[in-house]
Amino acid sequence: MVARAGGAAVPGRAVASVASKPPPLPAGDPLIRLRGITKTYGEGATAFQALKGIDLDIHARDFIAVMGASGSGKSTTMNILGCLDVPSGGEFLFRGHHVEALDRDQRALLRRKYLGFVFQGFNLLARTTALENVELPLLYRGDSKQARREASMAALDKVGLAKWWDHTPAELSGGQQQRVAIARAIVTQPDVLLADEPTGNLDSERSVEIMELLSDLNANSGITVLMVTHEPDMAAFAHTVVHFKDGLVERIEANHRAGEPVA
């Protein structure tokens, strides 16, 4: 612990300075590396081991779909990858730095700078305009009003909702709400976008639109996408599909068709 904290770069500290752009990763190194990640809930006789040793490498610009039955450990893994939760054991390297033992606030700062989240239920602030929702992460970065507005409008434009900027979630369709949520996730130009069943609440037509948007962001904005889904149709958009079962990675499939450019 101590030796690690004294390393060249303490991520918690490094991410605190938002202005500085992180150094590029050495070619071939994974963006995220999980080694023997375990997670146990409870203690003693009632202890439940949700993750039994996950090994996973995620490279920059990957588009990964995570599949598995409920209770397979995929959500727990996503929470750990999203720095919302800490593993009970194992190593979690982000950009080559150990992040498995960061405290609450350091993880928050890491999320603020490198990660974007999209949820199944959209999770937009009610009675708040699309623009204000998208601005939210920038508020915490302390950007100026002008910078917030420009970046947020750019993000809304990217998801095709620029002219809907002053509408509240109640005035938007489900698909539009999810687009606003995606704009909010990408407005900080994160390395990784974590999407938890992003199409779970949408009909198939809207779902395809959202998947095309994610594919576009992955291909053209260089954002690594990690997506949990139950639907093989949606998983088909990813380059790689990781199957979870009983707290372990069951198998990893390369999806060659998805490697072709999205129309």
Partner: peptide, 14 residues
């Protein structure tokens, strides 16, 4: 939930 969203997008406890 709003607090959850704020925390997820990187608000620290303080």
């Amino acid at each position: 939930r709003e607090i959850g969203i704020r925390l997820a997008i990187g608000a620290v406890a303080r």
